[in-house]
Simulated assay, not measured.
Amino acid sequence: MPSTILPSFPRAQQAQIIRANQRDLYHVSSLKEQTEAVLRSWLGTRWLTQWDKEIELLVKLGYYGLTTGRAIQTLGEEYTDIWQHSSLAERVPSYRARAALILLPTLPSYVLARWGSVLVNLEPRIATILRALPTVFEISSEINLAIFYLRGTYYDVAKRLLGVRHLSSLPENPHTRPPSYSLLGILLAIRLLYRLISFVRSTAKPSSEKSKDKLPITSSQTTETYIDDRPVSSFLGPVDPEGEPAKPAEEDERTILDVASISSATRARRNCTLCLEERTDSCATECGHLFCWSCIVGWGREKAECPLCRQSLNLTRLLPIHNL
Score class of each variant (00 low, 15 high):
R114F: 07
D156I: 06
R131W: 07
P124W: 09
P171Q: 05
Y155L: 11
R191Y: 09
L183Q: 04
L145E: 00
V164R: 14
L145R: 13
R201P: 00
R98G: 01
I129F: 02
R195S: 07
P174Q: 13
Y149T: 04
D81S: 03
Y154S: 08
R201L: 09
V111E: 00
L88H: 06
L187F: 09
T176Q: 04
L183G: 14
R96Y: 09
S202W: 08
V111H: 02
I129Y: 04
A158Q: 11
I147W: 03
I102H: 00
A127F: 13
Y194Q: 11
R195F: 14
S140H: 15
P108N: 06
A100T: 11
H175R: 14
S94H: 10
G185F: 08
V120S: 10
T153G: 01
S94Y: 08
L192N: 05
R131H: 03
I147Y: 02
E123N: 10
I190W: 05
I102L: 09
Y154P: 09
L184Q: 10
P179F: 08
L188T: 14
N121V: 06
N121W: 01
V200N: 15
L188W: 12
Y110F: 13
S87H: 04
V200W: 13
L192Q: 04
R201Q: 15
I102N: 00
A189N: 11
I143N: 00
V157C: 15
T176W: 03
G185P: 05
E77F: 03
F137M: 01
H85W: 12
E172W: 12
T153N: 10
Y155H: 03
